[in-house]
Simulated scan of single mutants.
Amino acid sequence: MENKGLLIVYTGASGVGKGTIMKMLLKRNPNLRLSVSATTRKPRLGEQDGREYYFVSHERFDEMIAENGFLEHAEYVGNKYGTPKEPVFRMLDEGLDVILEIEVKGFLQIKKACPDCVTIFIAPPSFKELQLRLQGRGTESEEVIAERLRIAQEEMQHQHLFDYVVVNDDLERAVNEVLSIIAENKKKV
C-alpha cells in the first residue's frame, strides 16, 4: 500500500506572518504542497490566478458550494474563501503532504471532516505587534485593519483547540518549529 500524505491545517490571525513562514516551509520541504484556495476577493498586486488563489466570482463560488466542492468555506471581511476538495485528495493519494492555510472558521469545519489532520496555529508575539504588522502592510484601509484586528482577537481565543501553537517572534525559529512538527507527525502516518 502506498504511503498517504499528511493533511496539515495551518492558521493564525491576519498579519501574523503565515505567508512568510509558508514560503520558507515550501522551499525547505520538497514533499509539502500548499492547497490553493478559491476566493471572491480581488487579486493583490503580483498575485496570479491559480497560484495564490483561484479568483472566482461570488456566483461561481456559490455554485461550488452547491456542488459540494469544498472541504471548508467561510466568509471573511466581506469575501468568501474555500478549499477545493479534489486537488487536496489527489495530492494526499500521491503521498504528498498538503498544508491548508485557512481561517479559524475553516479549521473548525476541517477538524470535523478530517479528525486525523495535524493542526497548527501561528500566534503573534503580542496583539500590539500584530497591529503594527497589519498597518505596516499598507494594503488595506483603516476600517479593514480594524475589522481584521477584531477578528484576530476572536481567532486567538481558539488557539487552545489546535494541536500546536507556534509563536512567530523569530522567523527562523518559527519555521524550524513547524518543520519539526510536520516531520514528527509524518512518522506517525
Rank of each mutant, 00 (worst) to 15 (best):
residue 182 I to S: 04
residue 82 G to Y: 05
residue 128 K to S: 03
residue 26 L to F: 03
residue 79 N to F: 10
residue 34 L to V: 05
residue 68 N to Q: 11
residue 94 E to I: 03
residue 82 G to S: 06
residue 181 I to H: 04
residue 165 V to C: 11
residue 121 F to H: 00
residue 16 V to P: 00
residue 66 A to D: 13
residue 146 A to N: 15
residue 98 V to D: 09
residue 71 L to V: 08
residue 38 A to M: 09
residue 67 E to I: 13
residue 92 L to N: 13
residue 188 K to R: 07
residue 164 Y to L: 12
residue 120 I to F: 10
residue 101 E to R: 06
residue 122 I to Q: 08
residue 73 H to Q: 12
residue 134 L to N: 06
residue 98 V to T: 14
residue 40 T to F: 04
residue 7 L to M: 02
residue 112 K to E: 12
residue 52 E to C: 05
residue 133 R to H: 13
residue 125 P to G: 15
residue 179 L to D: 10
residue 56 V to S: 15
residue 107 F to S: 00
residue 93 D to A: 14
residue 119 T to F: 09
residue 118 V to A: 09
residue 159 Q to R: 08
residue 112 K to V: 12
residue 44 R to W: 12
residue 83 T to Y: 07
residue 112 K to A: 13
residue 156 M to H: 06
residue 56 V to G: 02
residue 140 E to N: 05
residue 22 M to I: 05
residue 107 F to I: 13
residue 79 N to Q: 14
residue 122 I to M: 10
residue 138 G to I: 13
residue 44 R to I: 07
residue 88 V to T: 04
residue 134 L to H: 12
residue 74 A to C: 12
residue 118 V to E: 10
residue 133 R to F: 07
residue 176 N to Q: 06
residue 1 M to R: 13
residue 174 A to I: 00
residue 95 G to K: 04
residue 187 K to F: 08
residue 8 I to M: 00
residue 79 N to V: 03
residue 40 T to E: 05
residue 117 C to W: 10
residue 131 Q to S: 07
residue 90 R to W: 14
residue 25 L to Y: 02
residue 161 L to D: 05
residue 11 T to Q: 00
residue 101 E to K: 13
residue 142 E to T: 10
residue 150 R to V: 09
residue 22 M to S: 04
residue 57 S to T: 15
residue 64 M to T: 10
residue 107 F to L: 05
residue 99 I to G: 07
residue 115 P to S: 09
residue 139 T to R: 12
residue 44 R to K: 06
residue 187 K to Y: 05
residue 118 V to D: 13
residue 66 A to G: 12
residue 142 E to Q: 12
residue 113 A to I: 07
residue 26 L to E: 02
residue 76 Y to P: 15
residue 87 P to V: 13
residue 77 V to M: 12
residue 18 K to W: 01
residue 186 K to T: 11
residue 26 L to K: 11
residue 146 A to S: 14
residue 38 A to I: 00
residue 104 V to N: 08
residue 156 M to V: 06
residue 174 A to K: 00
residue 27 K to W: 04
residue 189 V to R: 11
residue 186 K to Q: 11
residue 94 E to H: 10
residue 80 K to E: 15
residue 63 E to H: 14
residue 11 T to I: 01
residue 56 V to E: 11
residue 38 A to C: 02
residue 137 R to S: 12
residue 44 R to C: 11
residue 43 P to K: 02
residue 174 A to H: 01
residue 45 L to V: 06
residue 31 N to D: 09
residue 133 R to N: 09
residue 31 N to H: 03
residue 164 Y to I: 12
residue 118 V to L: 07
residue 118 V to I: 08
residue 110 I to H: 04
residue 20 T to W: 02
residue 10 Y to P: 00
residue 132 L to I: 08
residue 88 V to P: 02
residue 67 E to V: 14
residue 150 R to Y: 01
residue 95 G to L: 09
residue 112 K to Q: 05
residue 143 E to S: 11
residue 28 R to T: 07
residue 27 K to I: 02
